[in-house]
Design a protein around this nucleic acid. Sequence first.
DNA 1: GTGTCGATGTCAGTCACTGACATCGACAGT
DNA 2: ACTGTCGATGTCAGTGACTGACATCGACAC
Lengths: 188, 188
Amino acid sequence: MSRWQPNARERLAEAALELYGERGFEQTTVAGIAGRAGLTERTFFRHYTDKREVLFAGARDLEELFVRAVAGAPASAAPIDALAAGLEAVAEAFAGRRAFARRRQAVIAANAELQERELVKLASLAAALAGALRGRGVGEPAASLTAEAGVAVFKIGFERWIGADEERDMAPLLRESLAELRAVAAGG
Amino acid sequence: MSRWQPNARERLAEAALELYGERGFEQTTVAGIAGRAGLTERTFFRHYTDKREVLFAGARDLEELFVRAVAGAPASAAPIDALAAGLEAVAEAFAGRRAFARRRQAVIAANAELQERELVKLASLAAALAGALRGRGVGEPAASLTAEAGVAVFKIGFERWIGADEERDMAPLLRESLAELRAVAAGG
DNA sequence: GTGTCGATGTCAGTCACTGACATCGACAGT
DNA sequence: ACTGTCGATGTCAGTGACTGACATCGACAC
């Protein structure tokens, strides 16, 4: 039998989300998070580089998934269609996680430092998408513009999904947002 | 005669820029900045909310200037032309400050935390510009898209200005960047 | 001459984050 | 079974960003 309870990392993330939600981000101490997870403060910092990052660990997975789907789209697909493929993959990954996403987004919305970190993650996502598009042979500035647009579509679709009825899936919301972008770009 | 030397705020900003440049942002302590300015750490935090903000105090002025110029453009001007008026005002405000801007940008480029803060300031600028455009009667999402585009143009033009010969003025560089954006948007 | 005010100083405290070193089950090799 | 390594965690002692409470003392108004 193991010396430690398993899933320390996940326990820390859950404890952090709970406490940030109950008391707010600033009123929560890292020692408090670690305590609730049955660990010490030092161990928290072995799993997460700082107090904010515990909410953004999933961003790396999302980025990889999104990028892989864009890169793996048929070679014949136009940039915007490769982007659409990425958005489909993202929607799939969020299936069944709306309650969690809502809790997390409410916490972020309540604190400026967390919003700051979210901007960084979105910028990182845009850069990664632009790289994937360039890897498909898309030139600049089209790659970067498409990537930025993709992030914008994701943001808007995500917000709508968070606010939607329990029944709405994310995929159609992302498709609608992408369609709106196309309309605007076409001079709507 | 006054009890204190004047311009405490400016002395702190200059001392911070010097030290961030000499030793790097992380290797610099707030006590060190305050000491070089002939003040105490506590006084630093009365003038700037945190160690990063001392480099971004000018961002508020820039935002106000930009917004005022956009809002004050002729009512007949199209959104993109109001934006162009704002860019002209910005270029004027930077005249003669390239050496300072270079020093500052080099410091920011060397540290991730400072880049994070810069993203926040640019997001704030975009939001303010979108508000100014809506005040001109521009609807959504055109206002937000125009504002985001304006920030992008500013960023690119600013980078080119930083890297340009001493003789290049900022205004023509911003005009060129805006022209490129128009070309891309037109389907170039 | 007196009183208020504002910018600064002083001091004590909290907490995010780090480095160095100790602990002890798991597991591999023998 | 015996032993040595390893990896996740704990322990402890810092450093430094940031805050609250209170003191100081020129300037300025009355």
